[in-house]
Design a protein around this nucleic acid. Sequence first.
DNA 1: CCAAAAGTGTTCTCTATACACCCATGA
DNA 2: TCATGGGTGTATAGAGAACACTTTTGG
Lengths: 245, 245
Amino acid sequence: MESQKIKNISVDCVVFGYNTTEKTLNVLLIKRYLESATDSKILVNDYVLTGYHVNEDETLDDTATRALKELTGLSGLYKKQFKAFGNPNRLLDKKDQLWIKNEDFNSRTITVAYYFLIKTEAINLNENKYNAKWFPVNSLPELGFDHESIILEAYEDLKIKCLSEPIIFELLPNKFTINDVQDLYESILGIEIDNRNFRRKLINKKYIIPLDEKQVGVSKKPAQLYMFSKDVYEKMFKKNYLISI
Amino acid sequence: MESQKIKNISVDCVVFGYNTTEKTLNVLLIKRYLESATDSKILVNDYVLTGYHVNEDETLDDTATRALKELTGLSGLYKKQFKAFGNPNRLLDKKDQLWIKNEDFNSRTITVAYYFLIKTEAINLNENKYNAKWFPVNSLPELGFDHESIILEAYEDLKIKCLSEPIIFELLPNKFTINDVQDLYESILGIEIDNRNFRRKLINKKYIIPLDEKQVGVSKKPAQLYMFSKDVYEKMFKKNYLISI
DNA sequence: CCAAAAGTGTTCTCTATACACCCATGA
DNA sequence: TCATGGGTGTATAGAGAACACTTTTGG
């Protein structure tokens, strides 16, 4: 027997992925398309986050994990619940109402939003059954429901979080160059960083481990590859209480 | 006509208040008491957070504001939505079930938790209709539902937040001494701070404004009073992107 | 005059920041 | 040999951290 879904509580997932070659931070979105049964006029044609309604017997984290597994086939990804959205008007736009008519849920639904960080290389979208597609977070397509503001709030949270926790490495391949990390910070934060200073800073961290390996297949001086050791990071982690107000 | 409440979605409020004389960070809790109708055995006798179910036509923030207004009579307080709790077992403890029987809501309820910061001096609990009482966050009484873990997570969030935003002043009287601020940080973070260094640091902030006033009614050298200027703070606020991983 | 807490300076170390050129490689 | 991005060093300024004694007041 399938467990019962709760019709007014959902989880939405903002999936962030970083494209190392294009140096863009992207969000994974799925297509929403509906045309009129009578005159085949396009009624809904936009994108939304992936999300599911919470089941009676599930935790919120379970629902989020299930949604990601469905969408990408992956589990064990970095995940963060960052905010609940419960404005009574959040699903009341005309096209959203049309869409909901075809679905089995309440138009007064509150959603608990999560964001996920994934290595884009880890998934292949060519045969994705939801028509999932990456969009740069700075140039999003038309979005349904209140999903644009959900994405923007997730992004704000990510910006703050990546300054104090080593979550950036969730977005990079296991082997990366120092400049990859710098580019990623620059993409996320929209700032420029001095390469020499950044380099020194990173190389001095014990949990940034140089490999006996260099880039291959590049038409220039191949860069040194590094990996991030979560183990070392956690062992040397020392909470500091620096008050900076 | 009264608006309809949603029976499976609630908001719970962790109200933090700081007692300047006892130097304790406290949480405001309300009594939950129920005895058997037949043999007057005590069935439920503990404390819970204040909370309400969300109304159909309300935002989550509205519900939180309404709950605080009911409890304290105050509005315009510092408020932060910090996490949603949706474990299917969160209300299934025996005494919680007994309690719920007398109430009109679903035992599969998810709650969106907020915390509030208030100046304890601003409220008078003597004539509080909910029997609200302050408890030190480090020595909480027996709590109903999953409210202990909600409080602990709120506290963790507060610890982090107070390091980077000037929210500490929400917990202090408008006029305070430098040592008041230090004591408060020490209470919240559970650390010791060097008075000379802390003092210098704070006095150098332009938004910490010395008043032409000293403590009165103290049996020792009266200390200089200061105020916090949110205006000045916001004008000089400059986002810095210091990466500290 | 005593108890209690307020208030005060200096030194050292570490980190952030600014800044410009040579190097190694594949094509 | 050239285009491309990789990689390198130094100097300065500012902030954090460690540390102990004197001052002021009310009682």
